[in-house]
Structure formats: structure tokens, C-alpha cells
Amino acid sequence: MTRPPFDPPSERDLAVVSAQLGRPARNVLGIAARCVCGAPTVVATAPRLGDGTPFPTLYYLSHPAATAAMSRLEAEQLMPAYAARLADDPAFAEAYLRAHESYLADRESIGHVEEIAGISAGGMPTRVKCLHALVGHALAAGPGVNPVGDLALEASDWSPEVCRCPDYGVDAPAGGARG
């Protein structure tokens, strides 16, 4: 099985992710998506943490503006609308099932953890539970893989193409200037 493509984390990446999260970054395998400025947006996290805890969320949304945007959408009750579409639109539900299978395949390519086998993230494949996880997957996998994550990105006031990164107090981003 091929491991999903993501950049290994640099020391700077880990420092930025720690600043984003407000705590030390743990078990980061790589950076699965970046802001246009180069700052981490989605981290790939080990399926088993260093302390042995199973961790099903492979793609973890770390960017503060992105997480705030998803929290706003959740507060606006978009998740029930997406869940209703799953129930009413068989093609949409099938695409969401494929997203679930893609997520599982990506995580399995890193390592099998029996306790979380078959469990992806965000409620996939039958519920819409966490837009943060679904958008993290959509950003990591690219457009067209996770339909709910794609819709949430379209509905949000945040984009990885427009930098809204704060000064993380570490070296300048590798990918370019902040806007």
C-alpha cells in the first residue's frame, strides 16, 4: 500500500503547529496541507500516539483561521443540512462512502491499529459529525475526494489561498510572504 503524500515536518513546522494548537505538537508524521504562505494547515497524525492511545484522526486541521471558520459553520447548523443531503442523495452518499474508504486506506498505509479499524473521522460514512475533520481530509486529499469537506470549504469565509496566519513567533514561512 502506498503512503499518502505529505511533507515530513520540519522543526519550524512543529513549532508553528505547536503555536497553532497552543500546546506541543504530538505524533506529527507530516504536513498534509499548507496555507499559501507555507504555514501548516493540516497535519498528518500517527494512528497510534506515543503513549499507545489509538488516534483515528489522521488529518487534523491545525490552522486557527480554518478551525474558526469550521466552528462558525457548525454553529450555523450546516451539519444537519449535509446529513439530510446524505439521506436524500444516493450519489452524494456514495461519494461520501468513497471518501471514508480513501481516509481508511491512507491511515492503513501508515499502520494498522485494530482498535480503530473501520473508523475514519467526522462521522463518515453515514453521519456528518465534525467539519474540522472533514475539511482536514478535503484539504489533504484535494478537491473531489471528500464531498462534505469540499462543500464546507465552499461555504466558509476561509481559504488556503488567502493567508490569514498570525505571527507564530518562529522563522518566516518557507512558502512565501504572509498577506
Score class of each variant (00 low, 15 high):
Ala93Cys: 09
Asp157Val: 08
Ala84Ser: 14
Ser156Trp: 00
Gly118Asn: 12
Glu101Asn: 15
Asp106Arg: 02
Arg107His: 05
Ala152Thr: 08
Gly122Phe: 00
Ala138Ser: 14
Ile110Arg: 13
Asp171Ala: 15
Asp150Pro: 14
Asp106Lys: 04
Cys165Ile: 01
Leu104Ile: 10
Ala140Trp: 00
Val145His: 09
Val128Arg: 00
Asp150Gln: 13
Gly118Phe: 06
Leu151Ser: 14
Ala87Trp: 04
Pro147Leu: 04
Gly123Ser: 09
Ala172Val: 14
Val148Trp: 06
Val170Glu: 12
Gly111Gln: 10
Val145Cys: 13
Ala93Pro: 03
Val135Trp: 00
Ala99Trp: 00
Asp157Cys: 10
Gly142Ile: 02
Ala87His: 12
Tyr103Arg: 07
Cys165Phe: 02
Cys130Gly: 08
Gly144Asn: 12
Asp88Cys: 09
Met124Pro: 01
Leu86Tyr: 02
Val113Arg: 10
Gly142Gln: 04
Pro143Lys: 13
Leu86Ala: 03
Ser120Pro: 05
Asp89Ser: 14
Lys129Ile: 04
Cys163Tyr: 01
Ser159Gly: 10
Met124Cys: 06
Ala83Val: 05
Asp89Asn: 13
Ile110Phe: 11
His132Pro: 02
Ala93Arg: 11
Ala117Tyr: 08
Ile119Asn: 10
Ser102Ile: 05
Leu153Thr: 07
Gly123Val: 03
Ala140Lys: 00
Val135Cys: 05
Leu97Tyr: 07
Gly136Tyr: 01
Ala140Met: 01
Tyr103Trp: 11
Ile116Pro: 03
Glu94Gln: 15
Phe92Ser: 07
Leu86Gln: 02
Tyr103Cys: 10
His100Pro: 02
Ala87Glu: 13
His100Gly: 01
Gly142Arg: 01
Ile119Gln: 11
Ala133Asp: 06
His132Lys: 12
Glu154Thr: 12
Glu94Val: 05
Ala141Gln: 05
Asp171Asn: 10
Asp89Cys: 11
Ala172Asp: 15
Ala155His: 11
Gly149Trp: 00
Gly122His: 03
Ser120Gly: 12
Glu161Asp: 15
Ala95Thr: 07
Ser159His: 08
Ile116Phe: 03
Pro173His: 01
His100Glu: 09
Ala84Asp: 15
Val113Ala: 11
Val113Tyr: 06
Trp158Glu: 04
Gly149Asn: 05
Met124Asp: 07
Gly136Phe: 00
Leu97Arg: 15
Thr126Cys: 10
Gly111Thr: 10
Thr126Tyr: 06
Tyr168His: 15
Val135Pro: 04
Ala155Leu: 11
Leu139Met: 05
Leu97Ile: 07
Asn146Leu: 08
Pro147Trp: 01
Arg127Glu: 14
Pro173Gly: 05
Leu131Met: 12
Ala93Thr: 05
Asp171Gln: 06
His100Leu: 09
Ala91Cys: 12
Val145Glu: 13
Asp89His: 13
Met124Val: 03
Val113Gln: 09
Glu161Gln: 10
Leu139Thr: 00
Gly122Trp: 00
Gly118Met: 10
Val148Tyr: 04
Val148Phe: 08
Val113Gly: 11
His137Glu: 12
Arg107Thr: 01
Glu94Arg: 15
Tyr168Val: 10
Ala140Arg: 00
His100Arg: 01
Thr126Gly: 14
Ala84Gln: 14
Ala93Glu: 07
Asp89Arg: 13
